[in-house]
């Protein structure tokens, strides 16, 4: 039905449907999004840009909200989970 694109999450290629968010790609890769101050694993919570739990590094730029950005082919995503 829809086309897929490939993004790299922590070095692993992940396929997502075109138009999907970076958050969806991270979830598909099975990765946590970040570690909290006290070391807890965390993942996306609000899905709408409010909670900042989904922060990841995208193409070398840290602290980006994965739920607010559409995944692009070849994007390099790093989580610290």
């Amino acid at each position: 039905m829809s086309t897929c694109i490939c993004v790299i999450v922590n070095g692993k290629p992940v396929e997502v449907v075109a138009g999907a968010s970076v958050a969806a790609a991270v979830a598909r890769a099975g990765s946590r999004f970040r570690r909290s101050r006290s070391g807890e694993a965390r993942a996306a919570l609000c899905g709408m840009g409010v909670c900042f739990e989904c922060r990841v590094e995208i193409d070398g730029v840290p602290q980006q909200q994965a739920c607010m950005l559409i995944a692009r082919a070849g994007m390099q995503v790093r989580t610290d989970g």
Binding site: A44, C46, G47, C51
Partner: peptide, 29 residues
């Protein structure tokens, strides 16, 4: 935005808002 209230375990990955899960699903979660 959604009102998300704290309860034991609400910070675990896999717990989202209700509208939150809806939004994430629409984005390809």
């Amino acid at each position: 935005r959604e009102v998300l209230l704290p309860f034991p375990g609400w910070t675990l990955p896999g717990v989202t808002g209700a509208g939150g899960l809806q939004a994430l699903a629409k984005q390809g979660w």
